[in-house]
Amino acid sequence: MCRVKTLIVTALCMAPCLAMGQNSSSADGFPSKPVHVIVPFPPGGGVDIVVRAVAAELDKKWGQRVVVENKPGAASLIGADVVARAPADGYTLLATINQTITSNRFLFKNIPYDPEKSFAPVSLMTRSDQILLANANMPVSSLKELVTKASSAKSPFAYGSFGNGSQPHLLYELLKVEKKLDLTHVPYKGVVPALTALAGGEIQLGLGSANVAGALIKAGKIKPIAVAGEKRSEVYPDVPTTTEEGFPGLQASVWYALFAPAGTPAPIVDKISTDVADILKAPAFTEKHLTPRGLDLVAGGPEELAAEIQKDVKLTEAMVRAAGVKPE
C-alpha cells in the first residue's frame, strides 16, 4: 500500500515537470504543414509587399509553404476577424498595420475581435513616417500652401483614406478641425485604391508611406508635400516635416507587424518571431525590400511590439479626441 502511495505521489510531482517539458518543446517540428498569413488589405499595399518577401524566405527556411492571402474590407476588420477566430496553433497569422490594433477600437462601436485580447504579438517588422500627398496638378507644394488654398477654395478638397479610422482619416480630420478647413473624406478599401484615385484626380489629397507612394511620385502623378514626423525622409530629403511647417501635432507613422491568435503557445510565437527577425536583419533583404521603400528596420519581438501598441494607443486616442471623430 505504501509503495502504491509513493508511486502516486511521485507521479503527481513529476506531472508538472513533464508538462513544462512538453510545452517548452512544442515548437519542435513547427511548421509541419503550410502556414497562412492573412493581410486585411488589398494586394500591392506596403505590408502586403513586405510580408510576401518575408514569406518567400520562410518557405526556404521552414521547408513548408507560407501562403499570403488578402482579405480586405471594413477597415481591416474582416481579415483580422478571420485570424482572431483561427486555431491558436501558429498556422494562421495576421500581417497588418497600426490601424487594426490601435485606432479601430476608437472608431467603431462594434468590433468583431478584441484588440487587447484576440491576438498574440509576434513581430514588429518595420516602421516608417507617413507622407502627406497631393495630386500632381494641385497648385500646392507644402502643407502651409495647402492650408492657405483650402481656406479660400470655393469647393472642398477631397482626401482619400484606406478606411474609417485609418491614419489619413484621423490626420486630415485633425487638420480640418484645427484650421477650420472644408475637407471631404472619401474612404477606400486600402491604401493602393486610395493612391490610385489620388493619381487619377478623383481626390486631391492622400497619405502614404514612401514604400507604396514611391512609384506614383516617381511617375509624376502625385507629389509629397510634408512628412508627418519629426525627421525628414531619407528617400525625400527635400520634403519638410509637419513639425518644420508648424504643425507638430500632425504625426503619423505606420508599422508593419505580425500577430498570431491569442493562446498560441509561446515557443511557437518565439520561433516565428526569431525566424522573421533573422530574415529582416539580413543585409541583402534589408537593402532590397526595406531601404528602397523608406522603411526603417525594427525586427522587434513580442515584447517590443506590445510596448509599441500601448504607446500608439495613447497617441491615437489623443488624435481621435482632438479631431472630434466619433465611433460609428
Results as ranks from 00 to 15, higher is better:
177 V>Q: 13
238 D>V: 08
242 T>S: 14
166 S>Y: 02
130 Q>M: 15
233 S>D: 13
183 L>C: 10
157 F>R: 01
187 P>E: 06
281 K>Y: 10
84 A>E: 04
24 S>R: 14
53 A>F: 02
182 D>L: 11
72 P>D: 01
93 L>W: 08
75 A>C: 01
292 P>V: 03
284 A>H: 01
51 V>P: 02
278 D>S: 13
40 P>F: 00
193 P>N: 06
225 I>P: 07
140 V>F: 10
104 N>A: 08
88 A>G: 01
184 T>K: 15
65 R>V: 09
141 S>A: 11
54 V>D: 10
8 I>S: 10
22 Q>M: 13
95 A>V: 02
41 F>S: 15
7 L>K: 11
89 D>P: 01
223 K>H: 11
130 Q>F: 10
287 E>W: 03
14 M>K: 08
275 D>G: 04
152 S>A: 13
168 P>N: 10
32 S>K: 14
233 S>N: 11
318 A>W: 02
73 G>N: 02
288 K>R: 15
172 Y>P: 07
2 C>D: 15
317 E>W: 00
258 L>N: 05
89 D>M: 07
127 R>N: 14
195 L>M: 13
104 N>L: 09
263 G>T: 04
153 A>S: 15
153 A>C: 05
327 P>I: 00
19 A>P: 04
170 L>Y: 01
254 V>A: 15
194 A>K: 02
90 G>A: 09
317 E>D: 11
108 F>K: 05
320 V>A: 00
68 V>T: 06
131 I>R: 06
176 K>A: 04
